[in-house]
Structure formats: structure tokens, C-alpha cells
């Protein structure tokens, strides 16, 4: 098993020839064809949060790829158009966390970290918000470009749970859109927020985890070290946490320069202009 791994990685790291493909290097490495799309949006969330319903509501049931044999269970893709731009939507596996390094979690984590989608929609279940925030906070450590889709608002109301999405948006530092994906309620707002984040029209200031105790000191020290090596690294604290936990994939990315590539790619890529 281990003998095969380096081979596939090497294959994936073949240099890409066309220079204009560079800003999309990460996504192309993950097998996403970006040629016909203006933006790539990832869909993440806990299991049982109605993620696939959101997926279907956004893509209008077109181009849905089912989770069925022969197809990759890991990733469904679809597309939609919004105000003249074409968006590709990638459905990531539902996970509770990104820390346990199960196969599903690795797929989701790799996509958000190395794929650098233009926006990540985090679907959260309004009835079990606290548990869902665990994943949301972890994703916000990795990427600034995120929107929270606060789904199942009707179920929450039915159970007498009221969620103040404005307070949530203030605390998380990213747009929070209450939705009922089953009926399509709130989907337009979600699209607008996702488009705003993807195009750079909406600036986000995501919440950072306030680590406690000795862990905090180690994270801070390593993050400073990382920042001195990669001044433009946006998620140095997260990378530091992963290194302290001994995450093989992130260690590899640091060692063989993949992380440096990503940072460079990001600083070189022109900020996608607000829509023409």
C-alpha cells in the first residue's frame, strides 16, 4: 500500500505546461476541469445536515452524479449559473471533523486546503448548531472564503429553537444564510453570498480558534516560524496545528514545497475582479 503512494503523488505533481493554468493548479491536481467555469464552489458539512438537498437545490437537479457503484462516492459535481457567471459545485463527503484523518475527512480537507475553491459553503444543521460549528470553525481556520448555510430552519422552528443568524455571522466573520433547502427557501440569498465571497465582493474576517494552555504557545511559535518562511500564508495557525498533530499529508506539503507553490500561486494570481 505504502509503496504505491509516492508514485501517484509524483504523477499528480507533473509540471503543468500552459502558463495561464497556473492559478488553478490546485484544483487541476484534484482532477477538476476548470476550463468552462468562472468559479469553483465546494460544499462541506456534517452528515445528515441536508447537504445533498442543498446541492440539488443549487444545481437544479441537473448534472447530478449519484453516490452509487462505479461512481466515486467521494465527490459529486454539478454546475449552476448565477448572474452571468458559471459556477462549478463540488459536493465533499459529509464529516464531523477534519482532525481524525479518516478517508472521507482527508478528501474534504485536501480539497479545501490544496484545491483552494473560490468559496466553500458550509452547511450547518440549525437544530444541532453547536456540534456543527466544530467542523465550521475548522474549515474557517483553513480558508477565508466561506459562507455558512444555516439549513433546516423549519425543523429548528418546529422544535422551538431560534437561531439568530446575525449574531452568528458577527461571531464567525463570514456570511450566514438561513435556508430551508427542502423548499428552496433562502437559496437565492445563499447564491448571492457565495458569489460575493467568490468574486471578492464580500470581504470576510473568519473567526480564529482561541487555543488554550500549552497547546496555544506551541501553535503560536510554529505559526510565527511558518509566517517567516511564507509571509503570505493565510492559514499559518492551522498548518501549525496540523504539523503539531503530525499530519503526514501537510508535512509532505511543507517538505516538498507544495505549500510554497500554493502560497506563490495565490500571491501571483490577480484578485478576481468584481464582476464586469
Amino acid at each position: 500500500m505504502t509503496s504505491k503512494r509516492p508514485k501517484s503523488i509524483r504523477r499528480r505533481r507533473l509540471p503543468v505546461v500552459e502558463p495561464e493554468a497556473r492559478p488553478r493548479l490546485g484544483l487541476r491536481q484534484l482532477g477538476i476541469d476548470t476550463t468552462d467555469w468562472d468559479y469553483v464552489v465546494a460544499l462541506a458539512g456534517n452528515p445528515n445536515t441536508g447537504k445533498s438537498t442543498v446541492f440539488n437545490a443549487l444545481t437544479g437537479l441537473r448534472q447530478h452524479v449519484g453516490n452509487w457503484p462505479g461512481k466515486t462516492v467521494a465527490r459529486a459535481e454539478g454546475g449552476f449559473e448565477f448572474e452571468g457567471d458559471k459556477y462549478k459545485l463540488v459536493d465533499l463527503p459529509g464529516t464531523y471533523s477534519l482532525l481524525s484523518a479518516s478517508t472521507d475527512e482527508e478528501i474534504a480537507r485536501d480539497f479545501i486546503l490544496f484545491g483552494r475553491p473560490d468559496c466553500t459553503i458550509i452547511v450547518a444543521d440549525a437544530t444541532v448548531l453547536e456540534r456543527n460549528l466544530n467542523l465550521a470553525l475548522q474549515i474557517l481556520e483553513i480558508t477565508d472564503k466561506a459562507v455558512i448555510c444555516l439549513n433546516l430552519m423549519d425543523e429548528a422552528r418546529r422544535k422551538g429553537i431560534r437561531v439568530n443568524h446575525k449574531s452568528l455571522a458577527r461571531d464567525l466573520g463570514v456570511p450566514v444564510v438561513p435556508t430551508v433547502a427542502r423548499t428552496g427557501h433562502g437559496m437565492d440569498d445563499l447564491l448571492r453570498a457565495a458569489a460575493g465571497v467568490a468574486s471578492g465582493g464580500i470581504r470576510t474576517q473568519p473567526h480564529r480558534i482561541s487555543a488554550r494552555g500549552e497547546a496555544a504557545r506551541s501553535v503560536d511559535e510554529l505559526a510565527r516560524l511558518l509566517e517567516s518562511a511564507y509571509p503570505t500564508l493565510p492559514n499559518s495557525r492551522w498548518v501549525a496545528m496540523r504539523l503539531l498533530e503530525g499530519d503526514r499529508r501537510v508535512e509532505e506539503a511543507v517538505r516538498d514545497g507544495e505549500l510554497a507553490d500554493l502560497v506563490e500561486e495565490q500571491s501571483r494570481a490577480p484578485e478576481p475582479a468584481a464582476h464586469h
Partner: peptide, 11 residues
């Protein structure tokens, strides 16, 4: 091990 990580993930 894994069971600890899983329990932590679940809150």
C-alpha cells in the same frame, strides 16, 4: 487511538 478521536469529534 481512533475511538478517542471519534468521541472528541462528536463533541
Amino acid at each position: 487511538g481512533f475511538s478517542r478521536r471519534r468521541l472528541l469529534d462528536l463533541g
